[in-house]
């Protein structure tokens, strides 16, 4: 249990998707103009992450990792399909995003209205693919670990985007040098926020 909480806290604060790995920066910079839309996108990212990463975990564990196919027949124990992981992960992500979009549209129309426009964007959000690749790279062992890693990463991303959106809303009242307006100042503020987040380094529970 303690391990799971540790993974969860670590992925929110220390290995934050935005501040430590710059994942999902494109939509982070493009959408973070108001808190309301940022919140919608953040929740959509959490939602898609906690579905895709565990699914990719199962695929990686039972189909792709070296020797994983031995449960079919012992003669397949030497097969390593690892080289297929990129294409399979992205296909799974694209398919799940499509599926989630259809399910939400059918059963939760109010949620669909608030998340709808963001869902297709998410298929190519680097944070989603990045989380699956990190899951594979760090060799997470259990289903629970992959779930809490995905949940924590999603929360971390949501936290980052709503904080920058809140700052950018206030920024519209300040007098910034003209060439720095828009993207330039957003980069510098993200950098300063990343420095602040570095103070969480070394936290363990």
């Amino acid at each position: 249990m303690q391990d799971l909480i540790n993974i969860f806290v670590r992925s929110i604060f220390i290995d934050n998707m935005i501040f430590a790995y710059f994942l999902g920066m494109c939509s982070y910079l493009a959408v973070s103009k108001t808190v309301k839309t940022s919140n919608g996108l953040g929740i959509a990212v959490i939602f898609v992450l906690i579905i895709t990463v565990p699914v990719n975990f199962l695929i990686n564990k039972y189909l792709l990792s070296p020797g994983a196919l031995s449960f079919i027949s012992p003669s397949l124990a030497n097969v390593d399909l690892g080289f297929l992981s990129f294409i399979i992960f992205i296909a799974v992500i694209a398919a799940i995003v499509q599926l989630v979009e259809m399910i939400i549209e059918k059963f939760l129309p109010s949620l669909y209205n608030s998340l709808g426009i963001f869902l297709p964007l998410i298929a190519v959000n680097c944070a989603i693919m990045g989380a699956s690749l990190f899951m594979q790279e760090r060799e997470l062992q259990t289903f629970g670990e992959s779930f809490f890693f995905a949940f924590g990463s999603g929360i971390g991303w949501w936290l980052a985007i709503i904080s920058i959106a809140a700052i950018r809303e206030k920024l519209s009242y300040s007098n910034i040098p003209k060439p720095l307006r828009g993207a330039g100042i957003a980069f510098i503020i993200t950098g300063l926020m990343a420095i602040a987040f570095m103070s969480f380094l070394g936290i363990t529970i």
Partner: peptide, 28 residues
């Protein structure tokens, strides 16, 4: 070496680049 400086450097590159290319400056 730390990650934040990459972001700040890009911000500075954008600043310098837009100072020389005025037509790229954001309107608002």
């Amino acid at each position: 070496i730390l990650p934040p400086m990459a972001l700040i450097l890009i911000g500075v590159i954008i600043w310098v680049h837009r100072s020389f290319n005025k037509e790229l400056i954001d309107k608002n």
